[in-house]
Design a protein around this nucleic acid. Structure first.
Lengths: 239, 239
DNA sequence: AACGGTTTTTAACGATCGTTAAGAATCCTT
DNA sequence: AAGGATTCTTAACGATCGTTAAAAACCGTT
């Protein structure tokens, strides 16, 4: 970076952005505009396929301007990751409100309803996770991969606390991790699974299927964990 | 395609491939060599990031030669998809052998052992699925996407038949679909989940975690479905 | 050896990419 | 209005990409 970093720092000042035109358009900061556009683009394409030119087009700016606010594509991607992690954590915390006094069924059902209501309208975080789940064994080609891995981490502890899960720690972990896995997939990769089911990924029937499948899988273990029951035993009970 | 298709057809003849050199190397068909190299590369990178030059390097040939056997990158990708679908179906069928006479626990446990034994050594199919799960809503950028969606379809019916699942069809579907979802993720995206758990994605402890998590989640519903029990009811039983 | 068919190699194209640097435009302070 | 700082635009670079086409190499038959 020759004289670039000098100019970059200046670009991050708190100077007010100019009006973007039109009487109905509020004044918006260019950086925020780029960030929002990047979130949309990174929610459609895996990191390497999403291009700076796409982001520029979505933001309504010339693409070299992006490097003024975010020095590299990787910087932009990581900024988006931080943004969506924060957003998801905030939303997720709200979904747990008031669930502590409900039964396992009502609590889980309501939590899923809230989760689906939010993520079906704001699927970006989960799509970005699903799009960037895998990277080559020996090469770190996805910047901020640990951030992707940590994106749903905050839900874990909240789940354990609100639901007052008392089972063995290993089983609580299985429960929360696999629940998150399903959420990443059924929301983040909705087109894939809805396609297999022959449903519209944005339609109510698909969402209903997701809800019922999550309940089918997670309500029974939730009940066990709430009461601190022993893990599923070996065959000895049935043979 | 100007004069290309004419030459291409000729390239697909049954003419024997030449010896690739070295006394220990068996004669190999160039097409097969390309296909094998492509499988490796497509199992490391999502479609758009995997390049023809990478495949050429992995196959030990000059990359324009690939277009002689596979006219386009998309053709190559779809050929790989057909290859891995066939491979997975064959392997999966073998995992079910002899399970019908076992108890739910023993049967599921043995099936998972076999699945993990195979897929941990041949993770390509599941990695390719996990790497190409999501595509933009309005654009088909992943060739043969329906093939990816259908890759694990064959396991569904075999599971139902061998395990003699008698529950409601909707629940059987939930069971088999979500089981496949977990398999795609925990094997195909092992680096992601093992990283979250702080485990080595190729180590025995991670595989043990996967097995126990699959049993934790799927053994109880399996038992219910084998006996055709009613679905998990609403809270009325517990309130 | 000649010839025709097949396979491989080489050079190059047009396209897209992320990034750089210079100049223009805009903004703010004096 | 002048001047400096900030933001944006334009042109272009070097790199990589999938693909094409021609030439070279190889193979099999006569």
């Amino acid at each position: 970076m020759k004289g670039r970093s000098k100019r970059k720092k200046a670009g991050r000042s708190s100077r007010t952005a100019r009006d973007t035109g039109g009487t109905a358009n509020p004044k918006r900061d260019t950086r925020d505009k780029i960030l929002a556009a990047a979130k949309e683009v990174f929610a459609e394409y895996p990191y390497s396929a999403a291009s700076i030119r796409m982001v520029g087009a979505a933001a309504g700016i010339d693409h070299p301007l992006i490097s003024y606010y975010f020095p590299t594509k990787a910087d932009l991607f990581e900024a988006v990751l931080e943004d969506i992690a924060d957003e998801y954590y905030q939303a997720n915390t709200a979904w747990f409100e008031g669930l502590g006094e409900l039964s396992a069924y009502r609590g889980l059902s309501l939590y899923i309803d809230r989760l689906l209501a939010f993520t079906s309208r704001h699927p970006e975080a989960l799509r970005i996770v699903a799009l960037n789940l895998v990277q080559p064994d020996g090469a770190a080609i996805i910047p901020g991969y640990e951030k992707i891995q940590g994106l749903l981490a905050g839900t874990r502890e909240t789940f354990r606390r609100v639901a007052d899960l008392r089972g063995p720690a290993a089983e609580v972990r299985r429960f929360t991790e696999s629940f998150n896995t399903m959420v990443i997939n059924y929301i983040g990769a909705a087109t894939y699974y809805a396609g297999i089911l022959g449903l519209d990924p944005r339609g109510p029937r698909y969402l209903q299927w997701v809800k019922e499948t999550l309940l089918f899988l997670f309500l029974p273990p939730l009940r066990r964990l709430i009461h601190g029951e022993d893990r599923t035993g070996p065959e000895s009970k049935r043979s």
